[in-house]
Structures are given as structure tokens and as C-alpha cells.
Amino acid sequence: EGEKPSAVVESYGFHRSVIYRWMRTVKGRGKGLRALASRKGTGRPKKLTPAQERQVFRWINGKNPLQYGFDFGLWTRQIVRELVEREFGVRLSLASIGGMLARLGLSAQKPLQRAYQRDPEAIERWQRETYPAIARRAKREKADVYFWDESGFRADAVQGTTWGVKGETPVVQTPGQRQSIGAASAVSAKGAFWFATYKGALSGELFVDLLKKLMYRRKKALHLIVDGLPAHKKAVVKDYVASTQGKLTLHFLPGYAPDLN
């Protein structure tokens, strides 16, 4: 538009010589302004092919290093590097391993613990058959379905994290006495919620007292899904459930399946 090139490039904050290189580039034969478009740098070529990287994903996803002859059950960048070198004959740096895992959609996570006694088939069968049958029965009876569980809380437990100076662990004041309290709760799929607190360990008698509070003034019948805690299966509990004459029915989750509750 008639401005001097040096004045134009100065308004962008670049060195005055840059504009002349841009102008020579644009005037190149068959180039035009497209020649100034930014391009992503290609970087150093990858040592593993896309197919090999997909194989690394298959090695890690849902499996553990013990299945490949390692003596440690959790994936680390070091173990992945050793496995890649053993199978592909390619030595990568730990930084390269981390970058590849990130590209594959993998990240370092704290694993959930699962008991060895867990029966995946029984859990899958409970989800596919047992619970839908409970839901259909409750619908016919115009009853509610609730899930029940207990938790314990301690006054001297520090929950969560806090910010502090790096290298200096923050100090949180807590009560000197080790006070604790138990809480039982029941929740439905529709969001209805009930809870009560109690002291001491849960026994069959205490469980019955909590059930009586849950059933107090309840008009609809209730199907209550609980885990296999011994206190839930005591004779005193069975006697109380029988005394409700169908108003309360207990259903038990398969063993070692806390994720269902």
C-alpha cells in the first residue's frame, strides 16, 4: 500500500532485514503468499515404525510385565525400553519412550487393586442377568432398589493434598485422639439417598438397627443390594428381613466386586 518495507516489518517487531527475505520468497516463480505459510518441522525420523508402535500398545494395554518375563508387575519406561530393545533390536532413550507412550494415549496411572479371588464371569453374569431381574421384579412390585455400603472415617486422617514450599513438607494439625466413626449409606439409581452414622464395628445386631432406621415410615417395598460382609448374613438379620413380610428383600453382590457397589 505504498509503505516502506522497513516500516512494515518494524510494526511487527521483526528485524528490518527479514522483510526483504520474505519479499524474495513471495516473488519466486509460482509461489506467491503460500510460500510464507508456516510448516511443522519434521524433526528427527522415528526409530520405530507405526506398526511397531501399535505393537507396543498391544503389549501394554491390559497386560503386565510379568507376562513377558520381567520380575516386576507394573509398567515403567525402563521396562518398556528393555522390551522394545529385546523384540525390535532398537535402543531408545527414556524420553523417547515417554513421548511414544503419550502418542499412543497411555499415561502413568495408579492401578486399582483386584483380589485374586475375583470371579469375572460371576460379576459379568450378575450385571447381565441378576441385576436386570431384580430391577424387573421391583418394577412389577412398584418397589425401590437401593445399593448399600459402609465406610469408616478417622479424625486423625489427612484427606487430600495441600500446597507448600518445594522441599518443605506442610504440617497439618490433627486431634491427638484417634477418634473414628462409621457411616452406612444407601442410594438408588434415581439419586435417592439415605445415611446414618454409628460407632464401633458393624455387627449383625447393629446392621438390623440400621435397617430399621432405613425402613422407618417407608411406604414402598425395598430391594436392598449389599456386599458379602459377614454381618450382613447373620441369623438375626435373616430373622428381621423375614419379619418385614416381603417389605424388605436383601440381594448380595458377587464376591470381591466392590466396584459394583
Rank of each mutant, 00 (worst) to 15 (best):
T25H: 07
N61Y: 15
E168G: 02
V241G: 00
V165H: 12
G164L: 03
Y131A: 04
E168C: 04
G246N: 14
N61R: 15
T249R: 08
Q78H: 13
D156P: 05
G246S: 11
I60S: 01
R58M: 10
P175D: 06
S38R: 12
E3R: 06
P120I: 02
H251Y: 12
V26E: 00
K233Y: 00
A135C: 09
V208H: 03
F70E: 14
A155V: 13
R77V: 15
V172T: 14
L253D: 06
H251D: 06
E53W: 04
Y240T: 07
L66S: 11
V84M: 01
T197K: 14
A143M: 12
R140Q: 03
R136Q: 07
R86H: 11
V26C: 03
R34C: 12
S203R: 05
K199G: 06
G30K: 12
D71R: 13
L66N: 15
L222W: 00
R24F: 06
S180C: 08
G182C: 15
R16M: 04
M215W: 08
Y240P: 11
A35Y: 00
L83P: 01
R44F: 09
E10Y: 12
G28M: 08
A133E: 09
P111D: 00
R217Q: 15
Y20L: 04
K212D: 10
S11A: 06
T49H: 10
K233N: 00
V171G: 05
V9N: 06
K31Q: 05
R137T: 04
W22A: 08
S93V: 11
W75M: 01
